[in-house]
Each structure stands twice: as C-alpha cells, then as structure tokens.
Design a binder for these strands. Structure first.
Lengths: 155, 155
DNA sequence: GTATGTGCAAATCATTTGCATTCTC
DNA sequence: GAGAATGCAAATGATTTGCACATAC
C-alpha cells in the first residue's frame, strides 16, 4: 500500500515548479493539492470542490480551474478520462504509471500495469520521429456483474 | 487508398440499425452520415456543421447531436479524443482499427496499427472477468518539427 | 511595490431540451 | 395516423473571464 516513499512530497514538487516558472504559491493552492493527494481516487472539479467544502476549506472553483493547468504541467496530475460531460483527473506523482479498464455500464475502473507499452513507444518514436511524452490507454467493456445483466436483455 | 471495399455502405449499415431499433431514417441523417464519410478526417460537431453549411446542406446542430449516440451505437463512428473543450470523433466503419499518435504542439495526428493490443485485451478479459468492447489508445508527444522548436526554448 | 492570485458575479461555449411542425413508416 | 425527427429558441452545465481586493515575493 505504500508506494508513497519518495524524496519530495507533492507540495515540494509544486513549490519547485512555481519557483522555476516565476509563479507564486498560495495557501489555497496547497490546500487544493493536499486534497487531491488525500485519496487515491480520480476526481473532477466539482467533486474536488465539494470535498474541500465538506472539509471546511474555503477555496473557490475558479481557483481550482486556474490551478489545473499548472498541475498538469508539473506532472502532478493527468487527465484520466472524459465522462458525464467533463474531464476527470488523477494524481500520478508518486504512483507507477498505469492504464484503465473501465465498465461502460457501472463506471467501475480497474487500474492495470502494462510494461509492453514502453517498448511500443520506443518503436513509434523511431518510426515517426516523435519525442514521446506519454500515453493514455483506456480499455472499455462490461465488468462481471454488468455483463450478466446485458446478456439477459439481448435477444 | 481503397480499403473501402465492403458489402454494405455506411448508409446501409445505418438503415439496418434504424430498422432493428424501430427508429426512423430521414434525409437529414443520411446527409450527415455522407458528410462524415466524405473525408477521412476526424471531426467535431461544429466543424461538421460548418462543412454541411458550406455545402449548402440544411441540417441543424441539434440534429447532429441527436444522431451521434446512434452512430456510436451502430459502430459507424467512435470518440477519438477530447480537445479544445469538446469531443472529436472519427468514422471507423470500413477502416481497420487503429490508434493515434498526436503532437501536443501542432495537433498533427498519425494513425498506427498495433496488433499486440488484442492479445493484451484477452489477458485483461480473463484476469478481471470483463467483456472487452474496445479501447482507446493515444500516444502523445512532439513531432519532428515541433520537438526542434521546443529544444530551442529549453535552457 | 508590483504583479500575481483570489473570490465573486457575469459571460461564454458546448450541449440539451421544450415545443410546434413536419415527416416516416 | 401515431410516433419520431426536425428546427428554432431557450435552458442547462461546465469552464472562463473581468474586476476589485488581497497577498506573495
């Protein structure tokens, strides 16, 4: 359960990022970052905002929206998937890279490791002369529970 | 250039889908489908709407929005990626499945085949007891032109 | 001290919906 | 002829922006 052994905390990473970019750090930003890293769950802006509210933290939605590009750029979070009309994110700093297996019916998400993808990326980089930054690999289908219900409905 | 050799046209596929579902086909829907398949490009709703307009085809945006779920369900199109605040789609009927390599700077997209993914899917299906429906695999990075510019800027 | 960040309220943009009318089956 | 689909205009929901004030460096 503790892959969270590393030199720098997420806050340190952000502080360094801010310094290098000539930005400014604020208590609001640290509150948001702490909340994002407080659970392993994926999040969307509204969810995160409500989590902050229920913890009596006063941060506005625009502050969250304005922070997200910096969190992406500093590598603390990444876009996970688009669903229900908006993007969902996940924090990635301090976790191994993983891909998602998602149920189309109930939304259940399983994370899995896939080591063969890095080889593939190297091949692509060579073949197309790209500097690969990363990938998004999402497999969708029906989980054990949901696929049972679907086969009932199908003629 | 001609992978487009198949028994049924996209319109036939849609007509059959409509019949099976007890829906109704309309000239507007056929116009939209023809326009989608008129180029190999990815599209978003607004782009498609403008393409239709410039071809003097009178179809409203809501009609496009209302058609998209059916096109997804019938397997004629799929979501390609989320960018600039909205989803982009691509038509897939009559084309081999492929993945995307996309440049983060200029947006240039290269399509590539990846046969090893189907093996991976079979493994996942077994391991997690999922009925796999498909996947979205997008690799991002910087294309040959753009990566040159970036290294200039970097200290 | 300056310029960046904050919160609020208003604006914007993509998408959806209500409704009267038209059209498909 | 009944139920679907269309187009329009209005509503919704996520995200962005303008602005006055606060605050980090």
């Amino acid at each position: 359960m503790s892959v969270r052994k590393q030199i720098k905390s997420e806050l340190d990473v952000f502080r360094e990022f801010v310094r290098k970019k000539g930005l400014r750090n604020t208590p609001e930003r640290e509150i948001i970052i702490k909340e994002i890293f407080a659970t392993h769950d994926h999040f969307d802006v509204d969810e995160l905002y409500l989590r902050l509210r229920s913890n009596k933290k006063k941060v506005s939605k625009p502050s969250i929206y304005r922070l997200i590009p910096y969190l992406l750029e500093s590598g603390l979070i990444q876009e996970a998937y688009f669903e229900d009309g908006h993007l969902h994110y996940e924090h990635i700093y301090g976790h191994q890279h993983h891909c998602h297996l998602r149920c189309l019916t109930c939304g259940k998400t399983i994370e899995f490791q896939e080591r063969s993808l890095s080889k593939m990326e190297k091949r692509l980089a060579l073949k197309y002369d790209f500097a690969i930054e990363g990938h998004k690999f999402e497999v969708v289908g029906y989980c054990s529970k949901c696929k049972a219900h679907i086969s009932e409905k199908t003629t």
